[in-house]
């Protein structure tokens, strides 16, 4: 039942993207308007087929997406799918490290907050969680850069790797685009260290955003499970409160996290656009911002539509995982 919902969701999202992006006019006028004489402009529009009825264009667009064709960028004339494959790996890598940071920070702190609930430690942790949410990722990124890269000089300012490491990775016979894996493939520990050092600040900036969400979620759920019957039963058998939190209450409290990760994907992607711009991390978000600056709306439409499909599919997968973990959830 739930599986069937993915199709209309994807359909609605690509339709919304189409309507929104095309409501104001055609992409060629947006990109080149004023730069070309009107006659040439009209010809370019005609050649691209943007002078046909909008409904025809819409169905053509749907058909193209159905066959996996998300269009070709105007500014550098590359298929959007190629852009995704080239830069998507960088975003994937960033998202992975960010989630790692979020787990490492959010879950233990959430359990601590539940353990010391309604005391000072709890208040401090909750304000910390709110601060994680309240700090825009780009501001967090700039502060981290300022302290660790400029003042202390211990971590690189921007980018995914230094030029030397990138050169070394170029000579790989097989490149995944995921720098961590590529760096391991080179077999040079210096390259791996360099790649990891570049990932630290962006991962923290983006990860803290999600860490705050996890912290609050774990805290609320652990507090909830602490008052259930089976925890009461364990408590009455004399199990220590600390052990109740770490062993009994925490596992069921993690189930909602799996579901929330689905929603976090959307937040992470939005945050990735900002993080990548801040750290010049050449991923999808960075490219999206570049295409926005260049007013290349074909590329923007393609990338956004594709991200929509990814979000919908991830949510679907997450739902299935949640069902597998939790026997109570059945679709």
């Amino acid at each position: 039942m739930r599986a069937l919902l993915v199709i209309p969701t994807v359909f609605i999202l690509v339709t919304v993207v189409f309507i929104v992006m095309r409501a104001t006019g055609d992409p060629i006028t947006a990109a080149l308007g004023g730069k070309l004489p009107p006659a040439q402009l009209a010809e370019a529009i005609h050649n691209a087929g943007y002078d046909r009825p909008i409904i025809v264009q819409y169905f053509e667009y749907l058909g193209q997406i159905f066959t996996g064709n998300f269009g070709t960028t105007l500014s550098d004339n590359r298929p959007v799918v190629e852009v995704l494959v080239t830069y998507g790996t960088a975003t994937l890598e960033l998202a992975f490290y960010a989630l790692l940071v979020a787990f490492i920070v959010g879950i233990p702190l959430g359990m601590v907050a539940a353990y010391v609930r309604d005391r000072w430690g709890d208040a401090v942790l909750r304000v910390f969680a709110i601060l994680c949410y309240a700090t825009p990722v780009f501001f967090a990124g700039m502060l981290l850069k300022l302290v660790f890269s400029v003042w202390l000089g211990v971590l690189p300012v921007a980018g995914r790797a230094s030029t030397g490491s990138e050169l070394e990775m170029q000579f790989l016979p097989f490149s995944t685009g995921i720098y961590t894996i590529d760096a391991i493939l080179t077999g040079d520990p210096a390259v791996l260290g360099d790649v990891l050092r570049h990932a630290v600040l962006p991962a923290i900036a983006l990860g803290l955003l999600t860490a705050g969400v996890f912290l609050r979620l774990v805290r609320t759920n652990v507090i909830g499970t602490l008052s259930t019957d089976y925890v009461d039963a364990a408590r009455s058998r004399g199990v220590a409160e600390r052990r109740l939190v770490t062993k009994h209450a925490y596992r069921p409290a993690l189930i909602p996290i799996v579901t929330v990760i689905g929603l976090q994907i959307a937040l992470l992607l939005g945050g990735a656009v900002l993080t990548e711009t801040t750290f010049e991390w050449k991923g999808l978000g960075f490219m999206l911002a570049e295409y926005l600056q260049a007013r290349d709306f074909v590329a923007v439409q393609g990338i956004v539509a594709m991200l929509a499909v990814i979000v919908a599919l991830t949510n679907f997968v997450v739902d299935i995982i949640a069902a597998l973990i939790d026997p109570r959830v059945r679709y």
Partner: peptide, 21 residues
């Protein structure tokens, strides 16, 4: 279904698309 679809979408991207529009 429409609202669920929009809700699941990265809000910043949607806002970008809308502000272009």
């Amino acid at each position: 279904v429409v609202c669920d679809a929009i809700y699941a979408f990265p809000s910043l991207l949607l806002a970008i698309a809308l502000s272009i529009m």
